[in-house]
């Protein structure tokens, strides 16, 4: 069997890279997604602080919360890049069962929602409620994507590195 050398090299190189840290690429993907979901939680909390919705539970100043929010967002985005490479370009859009179909749909719209949210961050002419709604929607999409993949993998297949 001959396989397109470039394709094989790229996907194999990706798998090798993941396997320098994890036992397999899929395990690495599950943990990166978990890191992203934790950072999404940080995003929600820091956004709550920025909007003054945390009441007396204020650990950070509003300025520090903004810094935390920006960097946790950048890191979370970074963590999702290997995932999207694996999911989209290697595994592809699948509908073999409900879980996989839900994950495929949510995963597909996630980056669209992310792009729109970034636009709302950069363009201050939109109504004040738009940005938190966009951020919340993005966090919810990530949560569903994580539940239908990493959580499923950890609870139904294998929990470990």
């Amino acid at each position: 069997m001959s396989v397109n050398v470039f394709v094989a090299d790229v996907s194999s190189g990706y798998a090798d890279l993941m396997e320098t840290v994890f036992t397999s690429a899929i395990v690495g993907k599950a943990w990166l997604a978990t890191a992203a979901i934790v950072l999404a939680l940080v995003q929600l909390l820091s956004a709550g602080r920025i909007y003054g919705k945390l009441g007396s539970a204020r650990i950070l100043s509003s300025r520090a919360a903004a810094t935390v929010h920006r960097w946790s967002g950048r890191l979370a985005f970074l963590f999702t890049l290997p995932i999207v490479f694996h999911c989209v370009t290697i595994l592809g859009f699948q509908t073999t069962d409900t879980r996989v179909a839900v994950h495929s749909v949510i995963g597909s719209v996630f980056y669209g929602a992310f792009a729109a949210k970034v636009l709302f961050v950069r363009d201050h002419r939109y109504p004040g409620w738009v940005l938190p709604v966009a951020g919340g929607t993005l966090a919810a999409l990530l949560a569903v994507a994580w539940l239908s993949s990493s959580y499923w993998y950890f609870t139904e297949v294998r929990f470990g590195f």
Binding site: T89, I90, G92
Partner: peptide, 8 residues
């Protein structure tokens, strides 16, 4: 996702 360019 449909194309799956790196699916070996």
């Amino acid at each position: 996702g449909i194309w799956q360019p790196f699916e070996p």
